[in-house]
């Protein structure tokens, strides 16, 4: 196992432990995030095992893709106050499951292709959710320092990660087209992942039922 994978898994474990230890003090969306971290950690380990044992971890990648979308969407569902947005999220979950199923069976089969269509679609939705949530934060500001608000860190993490993935994709395509060394982009992806889970960890660490009114 490389250093990068170990450090990634250790970070996930650290965030997981933080979430489990503080579980009772967390609001509902951050409890959902803690459960997501558990599933991500288990699935990443499974992906590595499958890669080593079966030389193919693409089915696990498909499971990661749909699982993450479900968890993140439910977390956002509990953060929004507007019923139209909440219902839209529920509708998107339903539609995404259908799209994902069709994609995994027909377009990008789960045994042979990475689910880039599903990942791209979910990143677009995450970016939209995070911008809408930033807007909600401006409409209903809490009288608490923004740095101490878990929603701010979570939303920043989601916006950061979802938009960076597009940059990543653009860079990979450019590098491949111009026959440049694209390994560096994968290192960049690793750094982005680490920053993302670090920000998620910060949000779980500071989340507090007493000062959060976003838990509807």
């Amino acid at each position: 196992m490389g250093v990068k994978l170990i450090s990634y898994l250790l970070l996930l474990l650290l965030v997981l432990v933080t979430g489990v230890v503080r579980y009772k003090k967390l609001t509902t969306p951050f409890k959902i995030l803690t459960l997501l971290i558990i599933s991500t950690l288990l699935l990443e380990i499974s992906a590595k095992i499958c890669a080593v044992r079966f030389r193919n971890n693409l089915p696990v990648m498909h499971i990661i893709s749909i699982t993450q979308y479900l968890f993140y969407s439910f977390a956002y569902y509990h953060l929004f106050k507007n019923n139209i947005i909440r219902n839209s999220i529920l509708a998107s979950i339903f539609l995404f499951i259908i799209f994902f199923t069709v994609n995994s069976l027909l377009i990008q089969p789960y045994y042979s292709d990475f689910p880039s269509n599903a990942v791209l679609a979910s990143e677009i939705l995450y970016a939209i959710f995070s911008l809408l949530l930033f807007k909600q934060m401006l409409l209903y500001p809490l009288q608490v320092n923004i740095i101490k608000q878990s929603v701010f860190w979570y939303n920043t993490a989601m916006l950061f990660f979802s938009t960076t993935m597009f940059l990543n994709l653009g860079l990979i395509n450019y590098f491949i087209k111009h026959q440049l060394n694209d390994l560096i982009v994968y290192d960049f992806t690793f750094v982005i992942n680490m920053i993302f889970y670090l920000l998620i960890g910060i949000s779980i660490l500071i989340d507090n039922k007493e000062i959060s009114t976003y838990n509807v």
Partner: peptide, 17 residues
């Protein structure tokens, strides 16, 4: 080529960030 890769990555990442 590696230098060019790094340069492009750093510039794009810097602009993006």
């Amino acid at each position: 080529m590696y230098d060019e890769s790094i340069r492009i990555l750093v510039l794009s990442a810097a602009a993006f960030f």
